[in-house]
């Protein structure tokens, strides 16, 4: 697998790409906190937040709808909030029967449900944009500057580095299983074939477990080799980066501007 198969970074020359990663992480987090603080039904503030998001999209030169296109990921979770439609007392809007129970959607319930979805949708878009305009190692470096303990950022850096390697290992294991477990040849659907391969569900689960154990051993041994190789190259407990990451005046202005916008958003949401 190519090393950047997991990467969400999009290389571009833009204002947002050049911004210090600390600023980007900070503004993203403040934006998400601000969304959580906005009251239900603060439509103008939600609209304003979306405009800010639009501005960020444009500044990133990735296209105004870049984050929108990738924002569906949080949607399945909306199912979990669906009960507020019926559970908050208010003026009934419409009702229907399902499985012998009458469900009544109230106006207060609808307001809350839509507000939860909008908050989530705005927040996830900013997070999507963050990784699209920041290289992951820079992101980790920013976290380090923002006082995330070094042991955690180092583990995350290693995780990111070896994710591709171990994913390749998994694909090798999965391919081997698929080619050796007795599949029914000639069946049309691949899924059906995989389902019939081997024996029952318990047996398949056991094989998956064995593979996980096997992967563990290979990873363990590999980590030993990696450590020795690092020692040989002079590793002394710290990872270095070539990027200096200095805050320039434009970074300070951008932070001040973003925070002012977010305060304005809160003000609009309340009055």
């Amino acid at each position: 697998m190519h090393f950047d198969a997991f990467d969400r970074y999009h290389d571009k020359e833009s204002f947002l790409h050049r911004l210090d990663p600390r600023v980007k992480v900070l503004v993203t987090v403040i934006f998400i906190v601000s969304n959580a603080l906005l009251p239900d039904g603060a439509w103008f503030a939600f609209g304003f937040a979306w405009l800010f998001l639009l501005l960020c999209n444009l500044l990133s030169k990735l296209g105004y709808a870049y984050s929108l296109k990738r924002s569906i990921i949080a949607l399945p979770f909306a199912l979990i909030a669906i009960t507020v439609l019926f559970s908050i007392p208010g003026k009934p809007l419409s009702s229907f029967h399902f499985l012998g129970i009458t469900f009544t959607i109230t106006d207060a319930g609808l307001l809350r449900f839509v507000s939860i979805l909008i908050r989530s949708w705005l927040s996830v878009q900013m997070a999507i944009l963050l990784v699209a305009v920041t290289r992951f190692p820079d992101l980790i470096h920013a976290l380090e500057h923002l006082r995330v303990p070094a042991i955690l950022t180092t583990i995350i850096a290693f995780l990111y580095r070896y994710l591709f390697v171990l994913t390749d290992e998994v694909f090798r294991l999965l391919r081997a299983r698929e080619s050796r477990s007795g599949a029914v040849t000639g069946s049309k659907r691949r899924l059906e074939r995989v389902e019939r391969s081997g024996r029952g569900v318990l047996w398949r689960a056991k094989i998956a477990g064995n593979m996980a154990g096997q992967l563990f051993l290979r990873s363990y041994e590999r980590s030993d080799r990696i450590y020795n190789a690092m020692l040989a190259r002079g590793y002394a407990g710290r990872l270095y980066t070539l990027n200096p990451h200095e805050m320039k005046s434009v970074d300070y202005y951008a932070t001040a501007f973003a925070i002012a916008v977010i305060f304005l958003m809160q003000w609009i949401g309340r009055f």
């Binding site: 290693f158 171990l166 290992e169 294991l173 980590s223």
Partner: peptide
Amino acid sequence: PLMGVMAAFIFAAQMI
């Protein structure tokens, strides 16, 4: 480094 590679292991094992 061991914990880092083990984190990658858990991540990858979730794909099995």
